[in-house]
Design a protein around this nucleic acid. Sequence first.
DNA 1: TGTTAGCACTCTTTCTATTCGAGTGCTAAA
DNA 2: TTTAGCACTCGAATAGAAAGAGTGCTAACA
Lengths: 346, 346
Amino acid sequence: MLTDRQLFILQIIIDDFIRSAQPVGSRHLAKKNDVSYSPATIRNEMADLEEMGFLEKTHTSSGRVPSEKGYRYYVDHLLSPGSLRRSERTAIHSVFADRQEGLEKAIQNAATILSELTSYTSIVLGPKFNDNKVKSLQIIPIDAQTAVAIIVTNTGHVENRVFSLPEGIEPADIEKMVNILNDRLTGVPLSELRHKIYKETTELMRRHLRNYEAVLHMFAEASGGSPIGKLFIGGKTNIFNQPEFRDVEKVRLVMDMMEKEHDVYQMIRPTDAKAGVQVKIGTENAEQAMEDCSLITASYSVGDQPVGTIAILGPKRMEYSRVITLVDFLSHDMTNVLTRLYNTRS
Amino acid sequence: MLTDRQLFILQIIIDDFIRSAQPVGSRHLAKKNDVSYSPATIRNEMADLEEMGFLEKTHTSSGRVPSEKGYRYYVDHLLSPGSLRRSERTAIHSVFADRQEGLEKAIQNAATILSELTSYTSIVLGPKFNDNKVKSLQIIPIDAQTAVAIIVTNTGHVENRVFSLPEGIEPADIEKMVNILNDRLTGVPLSELRHKIYKETTELMRRHLRNYEAVLHMFAEASGGSPIGKLFIGGKTNIFNQPEFRDVEKVRLVMDMMEKEHDVYQMIRPTDAKAGVQVKIGTENAEQAMEDCSLITASYSVGDQPVGTIAILGPKRMEYSRVITLVDFLSHDMTNVLTRLYNTRS
DNA sequence: TGTTAGCACTCTTTCTATTCGAGTGCTAAA
DNA sequence: TTTAGCACTCGAATAGAAAGAGTGCTAACA
């Protein structure tokens, strides 16, 4: 077990390293105001901490650097809870205050604000309302052979798709079709739409018109939509600011990964395993490219259903305290706003 | 004026430098099969070419490197017209062969293919049909206070926006409104919609219902949409492959710029000044960050109206011949496909 | 007169040696 | 248990020195 003094020293070493990015030496620490031990004493403790795996040396006669285990212990036990400035709070609140621009824009703004406040890279996984319910279906003919199918959900989300009309269909037929579809499918969750569309309406449609299959098929397709929410990444190039990423190859690894939507999604998709803020340090991330990075994630919800994730990607030497507080705060804010907004319209 | 031999030497110097990224020396050139002059002769010619500003030295005793003026002359006068492999042609054709996925996906694929074929960064400015005409306007109520406004154009493009309904409006009122709007605005080009919506319908609407302003305003807003087409960038990290971008600061400049949609748009927006492929070398680009890059653009059209742009961003030391051929080919292909697709539906 | 061989010169790159300083580990004294 | 002292290690910085690539110029050659 660690003595109090060891805890203290571990803490100030990591704090110092996070700020300076320089290996910290015993003499340097001893000079600090709140440290009253001599360099030699500190050296002894450092040696012990290193033996236990919390610290590392870059070479035999360098100062100490936190190991991954060290960071892990730090976030689990040593973190002083950060607090937000008033200006930060209002910045975050303002993102969702003005809904005029639409949800998508608001989410994108959230990503931008987050990266600006932290000067790390932010990732926001937009909400996917799988239990969105159909509010209205429309078919708008464009010309003799073509039409647009439109699905509006109870959250105001609109899916649309161009498709070819069956040969020789009449405007009256289309109207009939739309009526049937609306009659039978209003209120059906999007996730079930594909299934229900065939089950509920095939019979009816067949009675009223020929060539209904193409149309049904089309609607089923459009309802599929993207299986995941949209990804927004803010401050992609912030990683360039980090001194440990002076190396082109390292930057490249991370940049490449950020371009691969699928990988990013895998990394931050909401896991309902644990609620609250999650921290993944270095190799704790599955992604190879993340071995020098840390990822802080929190999911946000509508009601008690998690619908999306916000995350901060930075160097392992991250300001954990600040970022955790920020991410926690924003995710709660988003949960509140979205819940108020969407949970009422059922 | 340049002698034939000077032209020849300038050409092989640039060809060689494009391939190797190394300053090319007289001895190195003389050893090539198709060069029958001695190093000394070549040195003399090089000195002349340098004096005329086509070549530069990185330091007093280095080989020569093409200057910006050199590249400019090269693309204007020395370019051997490249040809495409069959596999490249089919790759390009295949992008637009299958329209099932929708236009947006196809455009995105174009960007991806382009960056993969060239191993540079590709930028595609999605089509903006400003003369799209309104086909249909819809208002779908979501709940008592909220509704979605939808505009469908003759190309099948759908704009939508959530908005707040005026207090105490009745479903019948909405229907009336939609009828008036459709009656008066069908066929109006999107670019004029904002204007016409007030001019044509205010009077009528006022007669039929209170609080029409909010609704009109909303439609006017939605019709504004994004003033520009959507941007797709492929192979953002390809720049890392270029040896002259080993430097983190240089990469950063370019990366930062690519994140700023507005800057990118300014750079590649269609200029109907010149048709065909345009090449901007280094500082010929307005953008500061581009001083070590070249940009090759071509716009594509529907009919004879340019609607979007494709571009390749690479180092000044770019394979101009290949890329120009490729960009030219793809832009024509896109023009053909889009013209066939959209020009019929007027 | 145009071309080429030869040579001195320049500048970068690479290697080696040296020094400097920050930091450690260990021992012994307080 | 803490601390002072000291030898030791290693990286970073500095300065030559040598190697190598390439040039410019001059003079000879065809």
